[in-house]
Structure formats: structure tokens, C-alpha cells
Amino acid sequence: MPPTDIFTLEVLRDYLLIGAALFALGILGFLSRRNLIVMFLSAEMMLQGVALTLVGFGRYHGNWTGQILTIMILTVAACEASIALALIVILYNRRSSLDVTLWQDIREAGVPATPASLITEEAEPVDAAPGPESYPHLTPAGVEPAHPVEPWIERRS
């Protein structure tokens, strides 16, 4: 009779529950946030949830397959990070913003567009910090020199 394993089904269930919650929250972040970088982080969080599930299953079955599949997930995540960050740099250089709704002109045919005015109306108002603002007062000296408005566009092309 083999000795009983302390990693019982109840412990496996903990891992599955935490992994499921991470996955669902990652979906929520990817669907609702508009910052490209936060969307990228949410996708990575979904991968974390799946990795947790795989490691738990591998430990429950007592073989290495779960851990090896997680190493494959790490590989895919590294590829995803390189491609996604390259895309983010390119997209930022085109529109000088990380907002993903600026790219809705490449959406599927037949899907209605979100007007930009609606987005601005729905933005949360900024809470003013209590207390008086204090900025250092600098004496202006000389004439403001002429400088390019968008230096990064000149640098790219």
C-alpha cells in the first residue's frame, strides 16, 4: 500500500480556484481597459492562471507533464512579450498615444464605432488633491527658443 499523498483533491481544488479567478480577472482587464500596456499585462495574468492550474494538476497526478507544459507557457509568454512590445512601440509612434480605441478603424466590418466624445464624457473626473498646491516659482529668463513641436516624428522619418 503506497503512503497517502498530502496533495489531495481538496488542495488541487484550491489551485484550480485561484487559477480560475486569475483567468477571469485577466479576461475582464483585457476586455475593459483601453491602455495597450494594461491589456498586455491582463493577457499575461490569464497565462499565470493557466500555469497555476497546470502545476496543480501535475502535482496531483504525480508526474512532470504539468510543469513541462508550464515551461512551454513561459516560452509562449516570452514570444508574446517581444511581439507585443514591438507592436506597442510601432502603434505609439503612429498615433502618439497608448489608447486602443484610436485604432478602431481597423475593426471588423459591421461593428459600430465608439465615438470619441462619448469616451471623454464617460471618463472619471480627477479628484483634486486636498490642500493648497505648491509649485516652485521660477523667474522666466530670456526669450523662449523656437523648438520643434513633435521631435519624435522628425526622429522616425
Binding site: 477571469a24 480577472l25 479576461i27 475582464l28 476586455l31 475593459s32 481597459r33 483601453r34 491602455n35 494594461v38 498615444s97 497608448l98 489608447d99 486602443v100 480605441t101 465608439t114 469616451i119 471623454t120 464617460e122 471618463a123 472619471e124 480627477v126
Partner: peptide
């Protein structure tokens, strides 16, 4: 602006 306005947060929350 885009960090202070989620895209249809109600539906996204419901789905996930």
C-alpha cells in the same frame, strides 16, 4: 482620458 474610462465596464464585468 483613456486610463480613466473603461470600455463598456458593465458588460465586460458581467461576461468575465
Amino acid at each position: 482620458d483613456y486610463d480613466r474610462a473603461a470600455r463598456s465596464p458593465g458588460w465586460a464585468t458581467l461576461t468575465s
